[in-house]
Structures are given as structure tokens and as C-alpha cells.
Amino acid sequence: MGATNDDTGKDGGYGRIASVEQLGRVIRLKRKEIGLRQEVAAGMTGVGTKFLSQLENGKETAELGKALQVLKKLGLELYVFPRSADPLKEH
């Protein structure tokens, strides 16, 4: 499951995030890759199990600060750049 220029939802892997649902899928994917139950991952990342569940399910109103905290603790990075400078775009 490599990075693609397409939505992450197509292959379930990492790559461009265009929706909160895709962000949630990437978080769930990483959590499962490292073999953590949701309860353990929530404790490890400093959020509640309910929050992590909602985040993984694409809740639109999930608190950004907590979402960034989860990403960091799971070893994921979030980058923002202009579309014209998309490093994943095929040349």
C-alpha cells in the first residue's frame, strides 16, 4: 500500500487526504499496523476511546489539536502545501 496521488480511500493506504473520512481510515490503518486495540491506542495518544473511535470514523467536528496529537503519537506526519507544489503529483 504505497503512496498514490489518488484518494487514500481507493486502496486504503497512505497518501493525499481530501476528507475527514480518509484521515480516519489512515489513522485506523496505522493503529492496526502497529497492532494496537483502540483502547490502548487512545490511552497511548492521550485521548479518550470515544474520541479515537469518532476520529477513525471521520467525524467532521473532531478537535484538530487532538487529531494532530493522535497522528504524532502514532508516528504519522501531516504536511500542507499548495496544490501546485504537490510532491505526489506525477511529472
Results as ranks from 00 to 15, higher is better:
16 R>W: 00
1 M>C: 06
59 K>I: 04
51 F>Y: 15
82 P>H: 03
51 F>V: 10
23 L>I: 09
1 M>Y: 06
5 N>Y: 06
91 H>G: 13
21 E>D: 12
32 K>M: 13
86 D>E: 04
45 T>M: 06
16 R>F: 00
47 V>N: 02
38 Q>G: 10
65 G>A: 07
26 V>P: 00
42 A>V: 09
3 A>D: 09
82 P>F: 01
87 P>T: 05
79 Y>K: 14
33 E>K: 13
77 E>T: 13
23 L>E: 10
6 D>E: 15
73 K>R: 15
86 D>W: 00
20 V>N: 14
76 L>M: 13
39 E>G: 02
68 L>D: 02
7 D>T: 12
11 D>Q: 03
41 A>E: 04
65 G>S: 10
48 G>N: 10
17 I>F: 01
56 E>W: 05
45 T>Y: 02
78 L>I: 13
39 E>M: 10
6 D>V: 08
81 F>N: 00
12 G>M: 08
29 L>Q: 14
28 R>M: 09
38 Q>K: 14
47 V>H: 02
59 K>W: 14
9 G>N: 14
54 Q>C: 03
46 G>N: 11
31 R>Q: 06
44 M>V: 12
25 R>T: 08
82 P>K: 03
64 L>W: 11
20 V>A: 08
74 L>M: 09
4 T>F: 02
46 G>R: 10
38 Q>V: 14
87 P>V: 07
73 K>P: 00
69 Q>R: 15
75 G>V: 10
44 M>Y: 11
30 K>T: 13
11 D>Y: 02
4 T>H: 07
72 K>E: 15
85 A>K: 13
89 K>N: 01
46 G>W: 10
56 E>L: 05
66 K>E: 09
30 K>G: 04
54 Q>Y: 08
45 T>D: 04
22 Q>I: 05
53 S>N: 13
26 V>K: 01
88 L>Q: 01
89 K>Y: 01
26 V>C: 11
25 R>C: 02
78 L>P: 01
49 T>D: 05
9 G>I: 09
40 V>E: 15
31 R>H: 06
68 L>S: 05
35 G>M: 10
43 G>H: 10
88 L>N: 00
36 L>E: 12
8 T>H: 00
58 G>Q: 05
60 E>D: 15
32 K>I: 10
75 G>H: 07
3 A>C: 08
7 D>C: 13
14 Y>D: 08
31 R>T: 07
20 V>R: 14
28 R>D: 06
48 G>S: 15
23 L>W: 10
30 K>A: 07
46 G>C: 08
